[in-house]
Nucleic acid binder design. Structure first.
Length: 563
RNA sequence: CGCGGGGUAGAGCAGUGGCAGCUCGUCAGGCUCAUAACCUGGAGGUCGUCCGUUCGAAUCGGACCCCCGCAACCA
């Protein structure tokens, strides 16, 4: 990873509900760890995302509540910003898909695809409700299964007999929302000609076989090998980015274009490009330095439900621009996070709300735990007993205790006189090794393993302390005790740097405790490495308090009972 | 036969033909500067099931069972 620049793209939260631990594990936290790490390495790193505001589910939710879609998203957007603030997610820009800039960029992307021959128009039959005067996606249509005659089945598949239901085969279809009857009606839409882009997309994917995670590559290539199909990019809906149909020749316009909008999947991914442009405009930068510069690597963070959109469709949209845009370099995709062994779902009532849980336990504890159970290659599970054990044993008992025992020993027994001592070569080697290993793992987006190395490093500190017994040396050979604590302080200072990507609040608290300025990433300066800290730089605070607070049995009970 | 992932100690995982391991938890003893960590020792496995290949299988082949994601209108 010797690139000059990095663009970090995190998936866009869909703003029809509150943020929960699944969103945190899926992209907020891994993308933030990576961004903070890159910046500390001195790499110019831009980190963009925003609220995904369009699509039918938003309009349905708004209807249900008797407000407009615009009002609904305006209510949720500030809530997402609160989460970002609370967890310290270090975005360069967190915008939304309802900006004028996004609208303009989306339309340009469409027009380029059209100009380059990748857009076709096609008529098809879709369910339409006369009484509601609107088209309905299959997911909102129910009826009787034509095979087993089970009632209340979804339009595409019967859950009772398992058979696939073809368009128009459902008996007495009706709207799930209003129960009004629906009928098939013809409608015209634009499609992206993915069969035409298939070879280019496949070539792109094959070029990344060794770089991507094994399962990500397999899923992607498996999907492509089934043959890509034309994919609709417009909907009969009044909420979304308008179609710039006036810019097209008359015989290429779809009918009733004014009552249609771009399909949400099409405009949401374009957000990565539009957000970079918005950010660069606000900073007097050129977005091409990030999108056309081959030394700028693009990392994408998302959950597995988003895989094909980022490894197939979005690259296809970009290739079809013929503007030589950078394609995704590494899709950092995680599987799902369950809670107490079950899939997160509102109906099961096991959603763990991101805001509530951080209010109760602190963002650091949540960041630490989620990172330790990140579903990198298989599903992860949030378990309250495991949560308490992890926090108490690893974060508090091992890491926090090491920092605290060193600082209290230094303050209470030694710091009256400032001393300088030799760095033990074994300690120096260990510190350097740790930075190298953690750095390598973070570059490869192996966050669980990277955090494990930090834990091991703290264990090493504890072992070094115990083995050298400074409390005994204090009586017999005070100089020896000085040397041991000097070495331990170097480990503590290294932990302060290692914390920065994972638990930034703790890194800041430790800086304050030591009387040092907070770490401040500077382009071109690598701070993610060992730097000897002279003791004259340390000005310990008067009242030493432990970095992390131990969880009592009742803490978890109080939280789970309160939600 | 739609595509893909998975099943190994209480939990989470590593292990692709040669004595079944790691982290956490757990039990006993030691040490003690600290929110107590560390050290030493122990308990805990039918490696999903069955069949096969082999001197030897968690590992290779076959069949089956179970769990999960995707399946193009779930963002």
């Amino acid at each position: 990873m010797n690139s000059q620049k990095i663009l970090v793209c995190a998936a866009w939260p869909y703003v029809n509900g509150d943020i929960h631990i699944g969103h945190l594990a899926g992209y907020f936290i891994p993308a933030d760890i990576f961004t903070r790490f890159c910046r500390l390495k001195g790499i110019d790193t831009v980190f963009v995302s925003g609220s995904d505001c369009h699509g039918t589910p938003i309009t349905v939710e708004a209807d249900k509540r008797g407000i407009t879609a615009k009002e609904l998203v305006s209510e949720y957007i500030p809530k997402v910003h609160e989460i970002i603030e609370q967890y310290g997610i270090d975005y360069s820009l967190f915008t939304s898909t309802i900006t004028d800039n996004h609208k303009k960029v989306t339309q340009e992307v469409f027009l380029n695809l059209f100009k380059n021959g990748y857009i076709i128009k096609k008529k098809s039959q879709q369910y339409y409700s006369e009484s509601d005067n609107k088209f309905l996606p299959d997911r909102y249509v129910e009826g009787e299964c034509p095979f087993c005659h089970a009632k209340g089945q979804r339009a595409d598949q019967c859950e009772v007999c398992g058979r696939t239901i073809g368009l128009g085969e459902l008996i007495e279809p009706y709207s799930k929302l209003t129960k009004a009857p629906v009928t098939l009606k013809e409608t015209e839409h634009y499609f992206v000609d993915f069969p035409k882009l298939e070879n280019s997309i496949k070539e792109y994917v094959l070029n990344h076989e060794n770089a991507w995670k094994d399962w990500v590559f397999k899923e992607t290539i498996g999907f492509i090998n089934e043959g890509l199909q034309e994919r609709a990019i417009t909907r009969d809906l009044d909420w979304g980015v308008e179609i710039p149909v006036d810019e097209l020749p008359e015989n290429q316009r779809i009918e009733f274009a004014g009552s249609k909008r771009f399909y949400v999947w099409f405009d949401a991914v374009i957000g990565y490009l539009s957000a970079t442009i918005e950010y660069c405009n606000s900073k007097n930068l050129d977005y091409k330095d990030y999108w056309n510069n081959k030394d700028c690597l693009h990392y994408y963070f998302m959950g597995q439900d988003n895989l094909t959109f980022h490894t197939i469709f979005w690259p296809g949209q970009l290739i079809g621009q013929n503007l030589y845009y950078n394609l995704p370099y590494f899709p950092s995709i995680v599987k799902f996070l369950n809670a107490n062994g079950q899939k997160l779902s509102k109906s099961r009532g096991n959603i763990i709300d991101a805001k509530q849980v951080a209010n109760h336990f602190g963002a650091d504890a949540i960041r630490f735990y989620i990172t330790s159970i990140l579903p990198e290659n298989k599903e992860g599970n949030w378990d309250w007993t495991d949560f308490k054990n992890t926090i108490n044993a690893e974060l508090v008992g091992n890491i926090g205790n090491f920092v605290h025992r060193v600082l209290t020993f230094y303050k209470n027994k030694l710091s009256a006189e400032k001393f300088e001592a030799e760095l033990d070569s074994a300690v120096e080697t260990k510190i350097n090794e740790t930075f190298t290993v953690v750095s390598d793992l973070l570059e490869k987006n192996q966050f669980v393993a990277a955090l494990n190395e930090v834990k091991k490093f703290s264990t090493y500190g504890n072992q070094y302390f115990d083995y050298n017994k400074p409390w005994e040396k204090l009586k017999l050979a005070p100089q020896e005790a000085n040397k041991i604590i000097f070495n331990c302080l170097q480990i503590v200072n290294s932990l302060r740097i290692l914390f920065y990507p994972f638990i930034p609040e703790a890194s800041h608290r430790l800086s304050n405790t030591l009387g040092l300025t907070n770490l401040n990433p500077t382009p071109g300066t690598n701070q993610f490495q060992f730097t000897s800290l002279p003791l004259t730089d340390i000005n310990l605070v008067e009242n030493l308090v432990p970095l992390f607070k131990k969880l009592e049995e009742t803490d978890v009970e109080a939280f789970t009972a309160s939600v």
